[in-house]
Amino acid sequence: MDEGTCVFCAIVRGQETASIVYEDETVVAFLDRYPVTRGHLLVVPRAHVVGLEDIDADAGARVWEVGRMLARALRRSGVPCEGVNLLLCDGEAAYQTVFHFHLHVIPRTAGDGWTELRHRAPERERELLEADAEVIRNALSSDRS
């Protein structure tokens, strides 16, 4: 998907209808057309970037700051909101369906029916956790050089 066929780029350009709640020079935030709960928002950078590896640090920080600001606003609005999920799906295996970086800001209430985040896994052994930590630390080191 490129900028020409990206629905989020069309929203940013004003060529596609959206219920925009916030915008600035870096991001646009609007209500999700297919909400998990009432008030489900998406925060997207104006620039077309696909995932975490593509977004620059300043734009990424702005997306998260606006997400935090919107979570606060949801708690103070008339939208039912006892909690908030901030959700980022990065890649098809992580359930990303629109390949333009976006942060979901999802207001939650007890019993709202969304239970997809529940995951019960066995505890991982400490030595396996340490081995995983080591390979990730090594990857971080190689990114810095």
Rank of each mutant, 00 (worst) to 15 (best):
H48M: 03
D32S: 12
A47C: 06
E3P: 00
W114K: 07
L42D: 04
H100T: 00
R144D: 13
L128G: 15
A10V: 02
R126N: 11
V98C: 04
G51F: 05
S141R: 14
L128C: 09
A59M: 02
A61Q: 08
A29Y: 10
V98S: 08
G39W: 04
T37I: 01
L86V: 11
L88E: 03
A59T: 13
A61M: 07
E82P: 01
V43Y: 05
A131T: 07
L31T: 12
A10E: 11
R108E: 02
F101I: 01
C81W: 02
V84R: 00
W114R: 00
Y34Q: 15
S141A: 15
L140K: 11
D112C: 11
P45I: 10
L86F: 13
D32V: 04
L88M: 02
S19C: 08
E123P: 09
E3T: 13
R118N: 14
G78C: 08
A93I: 09
F101P: 00
V27T: 12
R62T: 08
A94D: 08
H104N: 01
V44I: 15
R126V: 12
G60T: 11
F101G: 08
E134W: 03
T115P: 02
Y95S: 11
L31N: 13
T115F: 04
Y34P: 02
I11T: 09
E92M: 05
H119F: 12
V12G: 09
D54N: 10
Q15I: 02
D54A: 14
Y34V: 11
E125K: 14
I55R: 12
S141Y: 02
F101C: 03
L87V: 15
P35R: 03
R68D: 13
Y95K: 10
A18C: 02
A59H: 10
H119P: 00
L41F: 07
R68A: 15
L140V: 15
M69V: 05
G113I: 06
D56W: 06
L41G: 14
C9Y: 08
E25T: 10
E23C: 08
C81A: 14
R124G: 03
V98K: 01
E16S: 04
I20E: 07
L70R: 07
L88Q: 12
W64L: 12
D90K: 02
R118V: 14
A59V: 10
D54Y: 04
D90C: 12
D56I: 01
A57M: 14
G60W: 07
A29P: 07
G39L: 00
A59G: 01
V12Y: 06
I11R: 06
C9P: 03
R75D: 07
A94I: 09
V63C: 14
L117N: 08
W114P: 00
R108Q: 03
S141K: 13
L140N: 11
T17P: 05
R72Q: 13
L117I: 09
T17S: 13
R38E: 14
T5Q: 00
L129V: 13
D58Y: 05
V7R: 00
A121R: 10
S19N: 10
M1N: 12
G14C: 05
P122Q: 09
S77N: 04
D2E: 10
H48I: 04
H100K: 00
